[in-house]
Simulated assay, not measured.
Amino acid sequence: MSDLPRLTAAEAAARLGVKPESLYAYVSRGLLSRERDAAGSSFDPLEVEAFARRRRRSPGAVPGSPTPGSPLMVLDTRLAHIDDDELHYRERSAAQLARDASFEDVVTWVWDVSTLRAPSPADVAVARGTIAALGPAARPLDRLLVAVSALAATDPLRDDPDPSQLLRAGARLVTGLPAALAVADERASVAQTLWRALASRDLPGGSRLIDAALVLVIDHDLAASTLAARVAASARASGYAVVTAALGAFDAPLHGTASGAAAHLLRAIRDGDDPATAIARTVRAGRSGVPGFGQPLYAGGDMRARVLFELLRDAPESAGVLAAVDAVADEVARRADMRPNLDLALAALTLWAEMPDDAASVIFAIGRIVGWISHAVDEYDERPMRLRPRGRYVGPAPE
């Protein structure tokens, strides 16, 4: 296998978000290696990626450098926690729930409700018509966002100040959004409806894999979108506005849409591209590194990815996709201490089901609505507007 195509100095500096002078300072201090030839300096893309992730994990490792991901605040949370590299929802293993329970069963348990009341067929028809007005070029998340607005507009009780409106709005969204994306039997589950909306093939167990994915993405500490949901709830936004605020932070390449880039990478490798070449091309194309790798909350790798890959290995006709997963994971592991994360697993699921590359963001968002609403309920128990930080002026001094 050929060595990874290398990054130029400009590309390496752009990936790290620093000036070329800082890049060469890292080289002089032994933090990065480079090769020099007649064309100039070049850098190993995975060494650069590993260095970028070390800077995020270790504030102060490079004095004076920014440290993305450093917490601005610590908030109490009552839903997800990670112990010994295992994700739990309250006292129950998320992995076990994903393997054994349906999404609906987990949602009713998390929200402590007896049933999930769906919007009326007329309200779903309004949401479906709003989606249709976007045309075929709209992204899946665009369709989801306008459907949230449509379901809000058809709910006369959306501004009810009682906290119970959050759970009622949440139930309308997790059941109504899939129904707005695809016409399905009224008795179909959320996962079955999403399979009909997103997948291009009929495979046994397909909706069961979506069910497991929905459960695994419900909550995961205070991600950027979850914080946005809590800020909106702090201002006593409605359930629909909480989800809209969260989707604004979610629709980003470093968060909810990272699986699209990972799917593009896997697709290229599955279709015959050399893994090293595909990785280098992906790193050059953006500043988010190798999509589908790294998760600082786990020392031994993202357990959500592990569960989805285990389920996918038992699925029919998955060998080609999993071979691409293994090829890219081996190449990354050979160069950097990074393991697959949830985004790579969701990308593998989309390829197996022959979904569009960015379809996994819809599965992710609908599952995460459960967590956003849960956090909003908790925030309603706190003092209103408590999540209002104060700014510190650092602009030019007055003359």
Rank of each mutant, 00 (worst) to 15 (best):
E186A: 14
F293L: 00
W195L: 15
L209Y: 03
A319G: 05
T8Q: 12
P156K: 03
V27M: 04
E21A: 09
D159M: 14
P68C: 13
P178F: 08
A327R: 09
S149I: 14
V48C: 13
L16K: 03
S33L: 14
D85C: 10
P71F: 04
T350S: 07
L32Y: 01
A235M: 07
D219Y: 04
V74L: 12
A245P: 01
R187Q: 14
I279T: 05
E104P: 05
D202V: 13
F103L: 08
E49W: 09
T350K: 06
V146H: 10
D251K: 13
T193N: 05
D100I: 10
V243S: 01
L141Q: 01
H264K: 09
T257M: 09
P275C: 05
D83F: 13
L254H: 11
G292N: 00
R99M: 06
L216E: 00
D100K: 12
F43Q: 03
G320S: 12
A252E: 14
V106D: 05
P136E: 08
V146N: 08
G248M: 04
L87I: 07
R158Q: 13
L145S: 14
A95W: 00
D83I: 12
D185C: 05
S189R: 11
A353Q: 08
I210C: 01
L177K: 00
P275Y: 03
A329M: 03
R34I: 12
P68K: 07
L312F: 00
R139K: 09
V126Q: 07
L311A: 02
S149H: 14
I269N: 06
A235Y: 04
P296S: 09
G135Y: 09
T8P: 13
